[in-house]
Design a protein around this nucleic acid. Structure first.
Length: 273
DNA sequence: AAACGACCCTGAAAGC
DNA sequence: TGCTTTCAGGGTCGTT
């Protein structure tokens, strides 16, 4: 599942690929993603100067003169760069042809991702304007999480996965950061001290940064770019995610699996309280 | 305002 | 073996 690190790695690769070239054509092979891809609108990106490529939460924004393309990978999406003559893969839904003969392709089996167009400031777009803080850019993340949680009775794992609170933390990195900070994922968000939230904030930042450096957890067969040569290697650094029944690397007791807030969660009942 | 359930969809895994 | 069923999973939306 693409979470913040996977999206960040994808964004950096897109920056690298789009340098010194422009989009000369857009092929929409299947417009039925999370929201219908509006062909006429998206094609405004053709031959338009791409001014800036950035990430906001799990969204990638390609902003240009005529507006902005907003991309999301959903839970099964990925972006690859190919020769424009290369054979399509199953589930290649949207393709951007570049002036240099390459093609950027969005592949998404489950089609929970999206490619939408914003004519105006993308920050004011309905999908983006209510997003919470960027974890890697908020210097007082611990204090923020503590303050905002005081009247909330939800499990802390759901709380940090709520993109209106803090963006980019999905099921994998929520489980991992809670393990690293010794907090039980089912604990009520309002029953956690400020000190513990500070520790949690530190671990969220650390786990996200480490994952970015290692090319994320779930990316495969991805286009490499100068900063990252290999992807998907963070998988080796996971402590609890997907490891139910295995022994905790800290205390050797058994890692447990439990559905919390409708999401499968992994934790060590001994280390996390 | 917050919390919860439904929904979107396919592929992998489990069941028969 | 092969067909059928079940279910995960991010995020939005509508309802409570």
């Amino acid at each position: 599942m693409p979470e913040l690190p996977e999206v960040e790695v994808t964004k950096k690769a897109l920056e690298s690929v789009l340098k010194n070239t422009s989009i000369t054509a857009v092929n929409i092979r299947n417009k039925q993603l999370r929201w219908p891809v509006e062909e006429k609108e998206i094609k405004k990106i053709i031959r338009s100067d791409i001014k800036k490529i950035y990430r906001r939460g799990k969204y990638i924004v390609l902003s240009c003169q005529n507006g902005s393309a907003i991309l999301h990978l959903g839970m099964s999406g990925s972006i690859g760069v190919f020769d424009c003559n290369a054979k399509y893969h199953k589930h290649d839904h949207v393709e951007f042809i570049l002036g240099n003969g390459k093609a950027i392709r969005l592949n998404d089996p489950r089609r929970f991702g999206c490619v939408i167009w914003a004519n105006k400031d993308p920050q004011k777009h309905r999908l983006i304007k209510r997003l919470g803080v960027e974890p890697l850019e908020e210097p007082n993340l611990g204090e923020y999480l503590y303050a905002k949680s005081r009247n909330r009775n939800t499990a802390v794992k759901n709380y940090i996965m709520n993109s209106n609170v803090v963006v980019g933390v999905g099921n994998i990195y929520a489980s991992e950061s809670l393990f690293r900070s010794g907090i039980n994922p089912a604990r009520s968000s309002k029953r956690i001290s400020e000190d513990r939230y500070k520790k949690l904030a530190l671990e969220i930042k650390k786990v996200l940064n480490e994952a970015i450096k290692m090319g994320g957890t779930t990316l495969r067969n991805f286009t490499y770019y100068n900063e990252i040569k290999q992807v998907g290697y963070f998988k080796q650094k996971l402590f609890v995610y997907g490891k139910s029944g295995k022994n905790c690397k800290e205390c050797s007791k058994e890692i447990k699996e439990r559905v919390i807030g409708g999401r499968n969660s992994f934790f060590c009942p001994n280390c996390q309280t």
